[in-house]
C-alpha cells in the first residue's frame, strides 16, 4: 500500500499533514484576501466616483 505508507509519513502524519495543511491554507487565504482587498477598494472607488458625478 504505497498511498497508505505515504499518508502515514513514517508515523509523523499527525504533525506533517497539519503543518502542510496550515501552510497551504494560509497561502490560499492570503491570495484570496489580497484579491478581495483590491476588488473591494476598486468597487468602493467606483461607487464614490459615481456619487461625485451624480452630485455634479
Amino acid at each position: 500500500m504505497n498511498a497508505a505508507r505515504f499518508l502515514a509519513m513514517g508515523g509523523y502524519a499527525a504533525y506533517v499533514w497539519p503543518a502542510f495543511g496550515l501552510a497551504c491554507a494560509v497561502l490560499l487565504w492570503n491570495a484570496w484576501a489580497a484579491r478581495r482587498a483590491h476588488a473591494r477598494a476598486r468597487a468602493e472607488a467606483q461607487r464614490r466616483l459615481a456619487g461625485l458625478e451624480a452630485d455634479a
Binding site: A31, A34, A45
Partner: peptide, 26 residues
C-alpha cells in the same frame, strides 16, 4: 511579491480616491 503588489494596489485606491488619475484609471 505578488500578494504585496495586490495589497499595495488596494491601498493606493483607498488613499488616492479623490485623485484625478483614478477617474481615468477606473
Amino acid at each position: 511579491a505578488a500578494l504585496l503588489t495586490r495589497r499595495v494596489q488596494a491601498e493606493i485606491l483607498r488613499r488616492e480616491r479623490d485623485a484625478a488619475w483614478l477617474r481615468a484609471e477606473l
